[in-house]
Design a protein around this nucleic acid. Sequence first.
RNA 1: GUCUUUGUAGUUAAAUGGAUAUAACAACUCCGUCCUAAGGAGUAAUUACAGGUUCGAUUCCUGUCGAGGACACCA
Length: 571
Amino acid sequence: MIDEKIKKFIKETLIGMSVYIDEKEIEVEHPVVFEHGDYSTNIAMIHAKKTGENPIEFANKITKELIKNKPKEIEKIEVAGNGFINFYFSKDFFIDSIKEVLKKEENYGKSNFLKGQKTIVEYTDANPFKEFHIGHLMSNTIGESISRIIEFCGAKVKRANYQGDIGAHIAKAVWGIYQNKNNLPKDGLDPKDKAKFLGMAYALGAKNYDTDENIKKEIEEINRKIYSDEKGEIKKLYEWGRKTSLDYFEMIYKRLGTKFDYYFFESKIAKSGKKIVNEYLKRGLFEESEGAIIFKGEKYGLHTRVFQNSKGLPTYEGKELGLSKMKYEKYSYDKSLIVTGNDINDYFDVLLKVMSFIFPKLAERTVHVGHGMLKLPTGKMGSRTGEIITAEFLIDEVFKRVRPQMEESGLPEEIRNEVAEKVSISAVKYSILKQKAGKDIIFDIDKSVSFEGDSGPYLQYTCVRAKSVIEKAKRENKKLKAVSEKKEITNLERMIYRFPEIIKRAGEEYSPHYVVIYLIELSAEFNTYYAVNKIIGNSKESQYRLAMTKAVSIILENGLKILSIKVPERM
RNA sequence: GUCUUUGUAGUUAAAUGGAUAUAACAACUCCGUCCUAAGGAGUAAUUACAGGUUCGAUUCCUGUCGAGGACACCA
């Protein structure tokens, strides 16, 4: 990439001047404003600090040398008043960069800096029997996007979903189902309604567990039965609920555009987790306390966690040890990413510490990405009380606001629902992906999910618009060619070539929001350009304008694809 | 209480220690269509507070205040 080339160029020039600077210290960046050039470096300030030289004098000295050997891509190198050295690209560079986009098309932006890296990404982690709420939606959206970004960077990704189909929460739900066992939803019913039934059963169980001692005992007995190999009525209801729930989730994944390679279930992992915990109890990593098996994290600046409870059942922590082992057995990964809510960040520190003693290599390869919580203006949501916002409810609410706009769109009746669906999902996903993962999102359906400006539909619209212009040009047999006579360089050209480096950074930091921000800036530049320049025309330059438009549409399509946002044909 | 994350225009967000802190929404002005106006141009408005390190701090350090989260058998 061109930034690497500039760094190398600077380094070689400095060597030529007998100035030694570590390569890592050479940094180039895009200035905030285009007037300051396409790249700039602060190398003169860094160096001057060390030697005590005057930074501006030193900058002038380097620049003189840089100009002597400047590569053909660079038109101009200047020193700014404060010591920055600014690089300006030549028109040919921009023309070539557009040619490259057109040539690579759907491959534009791909790189191989993660080439062959086997990566398993765990995300979504919705628990059967419970509702698929907006927290799962967040994890799914972020996890899917990270998966696609690193795939673009060359990683070999396997998508994994870890599901808690066993444990106290399930027992509560099964108790709730048992109370209504004569009113189970019929087979043919909408999966959404069946899921609602399960959600209510869970809320019922959870509420009674807290308030009624006898029911608490019943639920504990149910929990024991589910863990055991006993067959019977409870087990049957459990199996029914589990399947009903998983079928429903599968429908949601399809709607959101995720396809998992592996499904891990707590029920299958519990035994292995328990075994590991007990083995390492003997080896002294864990201790027994009040009948439970715990890890004292205080020695490491962490806190104590229970890995097996006093009833002899492994907790989430204990099961997770089994999970890491099973993941590796399925797919001998180089990297393991786990995307969850940030409420378990501290817990993960403890877990990784424990893992570092048991599976040191796997612990090194594991990265936890904690995303923020979706919060509603009304306060916290909790699934115990039943006051939860499901993912489907949210998307449907957005859909209700989008659908009426279709009436004025002039789109054919038969595609209106499909377009509204794509727009709705894009609006929701965008509002999740636009900010740095890790921070909470205050989610107000009316305010957060917008269709104008900084939004998913804005990106879709820009892409559809660009494609529509190209279609029209095609019908009129206009030529599309990346050749320009003009010297003038537009801001749009200055944005186009940056896409690959954005993807790389997003892949390195597991941060889809860099892609989102870039696509918005690119779209804004295109729309500005579009407003003042007629693209289709008879001048020589219109071929070039068309080529730029095509480049923008390619980048938007590729960019939206890795954000897992679908572009409608028309809108 | 201990540990931890966090505090940026009216609102929601952005900014590997860099140049004039960047956008969108809302507000106020404009552009009624010629290739898709879910668009474009413009005005006004922001780093919680107090110190420190630095040529340079939204970013790093210390303290104060405010808001989340975790801290023993839920996940």
